[in-house]
Amino acid sequence: MKHPLAERFDGAAEILTEIDARIPDTRDYTTETRATIDAYHPKRLLLRVAAIIDETATTKTFRLKNHTDDALPPFSAGQYVNVFTDSTSRPYAISSSPTTLGHYDLTVRRVPGGRISNMLIDTLRIGHLLTTTGPMGTFHHNPLFHGDRVVFLAGGSGVAPAMSMIREIVELGLERSFHLIYGSRDAADIIFRTELDSRIAEHPGITVDHVIAEPTPQWTGRTGFLTADTIQDLTGPLDGRMVYVCGPQALYPYAVEQLTALGQPRKRIRFEANGAPSDPTAQPHWPASADPAAEVTVTVGDTSFRTRSGRPLLDALEDNGIRPEAACRSGECSLCRVRIVKGEVHTASESRLRLSDNQFGYTHSCVAYPITDVEIDIHSSPSIPRAIRRA
């Protein structure tokens, strides 16, 4: 519709005539934009197991290809995909290089008592299909904020995102200094050991030091844990270099303690989201009066069920057929965000809540523990993933 003021401007008549003569633009920009977004940030991928690589006695790498054989969405080295199986999901870092989009490699280590890691290692076969999210997470190198001199502390399968970063550096010939300090239980448990040795020779900026907790007499390298003294001996002064940390949950508070003892600023330490805390009661703000073994009632709409206080709310919901969207399962991505209508939950320190969440009763159900009877609202909790968000 022509605006009534339009004709009061010089030349308006000619412009309006030209507009009227234009061929109508009938392109469906909404559909085109949606297709582009889905290609780069798909909500779900259906991936086929193309190869299985035995890394160690406890670890396998599953090479996954698009079931259509098309190229997979791009990702940044260090990101992960969330694998859906057995009515639940688990995030696994991509260990392959982002320079190769014909496949994603997921390196999975057996966790004693682990529900999904053991199932994947024991039952997954070539040709099987897996449903995953697209690549997610903020745990990747950002040259603007992280600089080109970084240190990576890895424990166990926490070497997977480091391997992706190393492969990218070598394959693209990036001018980056990358020092990996990799802690393993014993020498036989070192994942990617042969390739790590070869990558050192291929790029002058790559340094890899192994630290073995339970060495055999034949081991001649570093032993013990990733202590402040060990880190300083291997890296020299950190000088504010960005330090990445990825490994079992117990590594994170320990690494912070060791790094801060060296004067490393907390803002220069980055953690990979890696699951809910193994013992939420060990956190200082767990209520002293709350018994993690006590059962409470959780109510969602017309559904109620009983669960232990020491069990993550998301796990309890899934066990009862209620499955909020979820990805990181570590309190980071915010996809499993719910509102606590009544009752009280313990939200683990891993959760990255918004400043307003406490005021309005929101929490991340993957790291929230119901310590009283609770009523929760899932549908009024819009989940805005922080993948725009694994600095």
Rank of each mutant, 00 (worst) to 15 (best):
H3S: 15
R8Q: 13
F9C: 00
G11K: 02
I15A: 06
A21C: 09
R22F: 01
D25M: 10
T26P: 03
T31K: 07
Y40N: 07
Y40L: 14
H41I: 11
L45R: 06
R48E: 12
I52S: 11
I52E: 12
I53K: 07
T56H: 06
K60M: 01
T61K: 11
T61N: 09
L64A: 04
L72N: 00
P73K: 05
F75T: 04
S76H: 10
V81H: 04
N82Y: 02
S87P: 01
L120I: 04
L120K: 00
R125N: 10
M136E: 14
G147M: 15
A154R: 05
P161K: 01
E168Q: 14
L172Y: 06
F178E: 07
D186G: 10
T194K: 12
V211W: 10
R222A: 14
G224N: 11
A228H: 09
V245S: 07
A250M: 06
P253Y: 06
L259N: 00
G263R: 05
Q264I: 02
R268N: 11
S278W: 08
A290G: 02
D291T: 12
D291S: 15
V296Y: 15
T299H: 09
R306A: 13
R308A: 14
S309P: 03
L314Y: 06
A316E: 05
I322Y: 06
S334K: 01
V341L: 14
G343I: 02
S349Y: 11
R352T: 05
N358C: 06
F360C: 12
F360D: 09
H364L: 15
H379C: 08
P385I: 05
R389N: 12
